[in-house]
Design a protein around this nucleic acid. Structure first.
Lengths: 236, 236
DNA sequence: ACCTGAACACCGTTCAAGT
DNA sequence: ACCTGAACACCGTTCAAGT
């Protein structure tokens, strides 16, 4: 038994094992806990052992991103570009939501790895196959931006996934809400309509998925209209 | 002379001086160089002296964001919500572009400071004043997301502001481009049309301001259409 | 009231050495 | 070929002490 365990723990490291462990650590403990030292510890190895398999921390993060891209469903195909794009984006969104750390990490990458470029290339292909000009496709990809990964920077982001409200007594919450509403009347006006929840001015009560699809569909419909009109930029 | 200099350097710290120095340091040396220790050194003071004026590094960053918000022009006013929103966003964009570090910092903030809430409240007010329902305004604010600050996560971000191309000889660049084009034909197709620059597949040659306004106007026109149609979410 | 010194518990990464 | 140990140059933040 002990020997067995020793063997398992001491199985030679490789890039795959390092990346899997890194993803698991980020999933479980949060991205802020992912340090080379902590990851090494998790693998039962001295920190420097990792550097034989990833050049440095940046490359580790690149590898983690590639792992998450691997979880996105392949393109749906079919004649309808709009539906194909929609399904692709929503699949990417599901993958990203499974790994909350992936969003900020993806945002911070400036080096485009092959996996990232492959994904982008196939994404661009959906518009071209749908009859979009290269010109319009270019601008349309910019307009989508990080939305091709299924996320955008939200304004009313839930602070750290914490539910602050639970700790605060009912009456204090109501008082806080009234104070907020007095100072920020416009925010209060739009918060209450959609949230139906007096206890929180911002942050909860919104259906993120609804908001995401609302903006996505607004953009897709805009793209469709421009394509039908034969839109071109002045430069093309 | 020496005495004079000593006096200037030793002028008592206050929150304002700390924040001004932090903004200047981030502007000059980059946000990655902004550490409490480095900032203290810049102010001729021991690191711990800062903690009398900001609670911790998080609060320092909050303060820096407030300073940048102060650079955004006040709302234009007037009857035309669309123009008011447009000008507000583009003013925010100019402020943010002056301080490249502000974008990632703003993205990372989960605590909404009063300055952030004030800005958001006045922003919401533009839609309500323009006759938008609270319901539609809520979703419209989500759809804009970080665009109210004048930025979005770009896909083809310029890596670190570096011009890689200058270092690489002409022929090597052309060879690299052909290799990229072979592997990522769709990206190559849309890169060349808009860039007119064979030397770079991604990253340069795009007019960022054009792309930003393209997407912004597409969204604003979508909002206008929904408002005219009297759009409501099912829940409202 | 404001600043300091020393310390704690961390980082990523180098280099030269071990098996 | 793969892993280790010791070291370097950093972090943010605490505590108790100085003026």
């Amino acid at each position: 038994m002990i020997q067995q365990r020793e063997v398992t723990r001491r199985a030679p490291l490789n890039r795959g094992r390092v990346l899997t462990a890194a993803v698991a650590l980020a999933d479980d403990a949060g991205i802020e806990s992912l340090s080379m030292r902590r990851l090494a510890q998790e693998l039962g190895v001295v920190p420097m052992a990792l550097y034989k398999h990833v050049a440095n921390k940046e490359e580790l993060l690149d590898g983690m991103v590639e792992a998450i891209i691997g979880e996105i469903d392949p393109p749906a195909g079919g004649a309808d570009w709009k539906n194909a794009v929609r399904l692709q984006v929503l699949s990417a969104r599901r993958a990203l939501l499974r790994h909350p750390w992936a969003r900020p990490v993806l945002e911070s990458r400036t080096n485009k790895t092959p996996a990232v470029l492959d994904y982008m290339d196939s994404f661009v292909g959906m518009f071209l196959a749908g009859g979009f000009s290269a010109d319009l496709t270019h601008h349309v990809m910019h307009a989508l931006g990080s939305r091709i990964w299924g996320f955008t920077q939200e304004l009313f982001d839930h602070p750290n996934g914490r539910t602050v409200e639970a700790d605060v007594p009912e009456e204090a919450r109501a008082a806080m809400f009234r104070q907020m509403a007095a100072r920020y009347p416009n925010i209060a006006a739009i918060a209450t309509t959609a949230a139906h929840d007096e206890g929180s001015v911002v942050g909860t009560g919104c259906d993120d998925q609804f908001e995401f699809e609302f903006a996505l569909d607004l953009l897709l419909e805009g793209f469709e209209r421009l394509n039908r009109q034969g839109w071109t930029s002045r430069r093309a």
